[in-house]
Computed example of a mutant assay.
Amino acid sequence: MSSIADNIESVTRRIQKATLAAGRPVESVHLLAVSKTRPAADLREAFAAGQRAFGESYLQEALDKIAALADLDGLEWHFIGPIQSNKTRQIAASFDWVHGVDRLKIARRLSEQREPQLPPLNICLQVNIDNEASKSGCRLEELPELVAGVGQLANLRLRGLMAIPDPQQDDQGLRSSFHRLADALAELRHRFPDAGPLDTLSMGMSDDLELAIAEGATWVRVGTALFGARN
């Protein structure tokens, strides 16, 4: 069985190959290790192999791991799950990034509850790129209003967009979904030059990261290819 270190090396090679094939600098794409449901020991092993950014979806589980790994310097914690209003205070206090903001109400709470001594919280707006009834995220046409509102929140740093396309599509369909998200980010960057860096596309996972990178992904969220299938 491959070790987590071997898997990180393998996925990193995939990312580098896809990034170079897209004519982009290797350092323009970052690996987010999706560590939800994984024990702290697995994250510690990944850290020893050089991984620093970890994505969590279940708040209490994440807080337990953050405490258990507090001795490791340089960890970067990303909240990637749906956000309930009663969870925003702890998310604002404990995470460096949030990838799933889809309502202004949630953004306001995160900004208000971010401790003033902390740097602004990096956020991505989640888009329901294929308009799936079962998925969270705003629609593309709702983005301008949301960006305008978030741009007024002092303790947030709007970095870009996040989406999970419909996995039932073929490669052409997936690539089209990624392309629409990239186009939306480019349009927002032009329309809202002062809203934030707008430099981030969080898209692509274990099975489709090459397609996402070809369309401009800057964060790929990989769990299974690093840690194996979840129980």
Rank of each mutant, 00 (worst) to 15 (best):
A148M: 04
C124S: 10
E132L: 14
W219K: 00
A33H: 03
D208C: 09
F178C: 04
D42K: 04
E56P: 02
G149I: 07
A40H: 05
E215Q: 15
L72A: 05
A92I: 01
A49N: 05
A217H: 13
S85F: 03
Q84A: 05
P197Y: 12
S2C: 09
I80N: 01
S111L: 10
T224D: 03
T218Q: 14
A214C: 12
L143Y: 05
I66Y: 03
L161H: 02
G216H: 12
L211M: 12
A22P: 09
H78D: 04
M203E: 09
K17E: 15
A214S: 14
R157H: 04
L69F: 03
K36M: 02
E27C: 13
A21C: 11
I83S: 01
L104W: 13
H30C: 12
N231E: 14
A67C: 08
L43K: 05
G228A: 06
D130L: 09
D130T: 14
L211T: 11
I15M: 06
V29P: 05
P193W: 14
S2P: 15
K36H: 10
T37R: 02
L121H: 05
A186K: 15
L226Q: 03
M203N: 11
G55Q: 02
L143A: 13
G137T: 13
V127N: 08
L43P: 04
D102L: 08
A92P: 00
D71Q: 03
Q60C: 01
E141K: 13
L121D: 01
Q172V: 11
F192T: 05
V29G: 08
E115A: 14
G55F: 00
R13N: 12
P39A: 10
A225P: 01
T37A: 02
E76T: 10
D170K: 11
G50C: 08
P119W: 07
L153M: 08
I66F: 00
P120Q: 12
P82F: 02
Q51A: 11
W97F: 09
I164E: 03
A107K: 06
V98W: 00
S177K: 07
A48D: 05
Q84V: 04
Y58A: 02
C124P: 07
L69V: 00
W97A: 00
F79Y: 09
L156E: 08
R24Y: 13
K36G: 02
I213Q: 02
A217E: 09
I91N: 00
A229V: 06
T218W: 08
A154D: 14
V26G: 04
Q60G: 01
L125T: 04
A217T: 07
A62T: 00
D207C: 04
M203F: 13
H190F: 11
R103W: 05
R44Y: 05
A154R: 15
N128W: 08
A21Y: 11
W219I: 15
A49R: 03
S57M: 03
G160K: 09
L198K: 12
G173C: 07
L59D: 03
D208I: 04
D199F: 13
S28P: 11
S35R: 00
G223C: 04
G137V: 11
S177Y: 12
S176L: 15
D71T: 04
A133C: 08
A5C: 06
A33K: 01
W77V: 00
A148Y: 01
M205C: 10
S28A: 14
R230T: 02
A133T: 14
L121S: 03
E187M: 14
H30V: 07
I129K: 11
Q169M: 15
K36P: 01
W219Q: 08
L185G: 10
N131Q: 15
V147A: 06
S28F: 06
L75C: 07
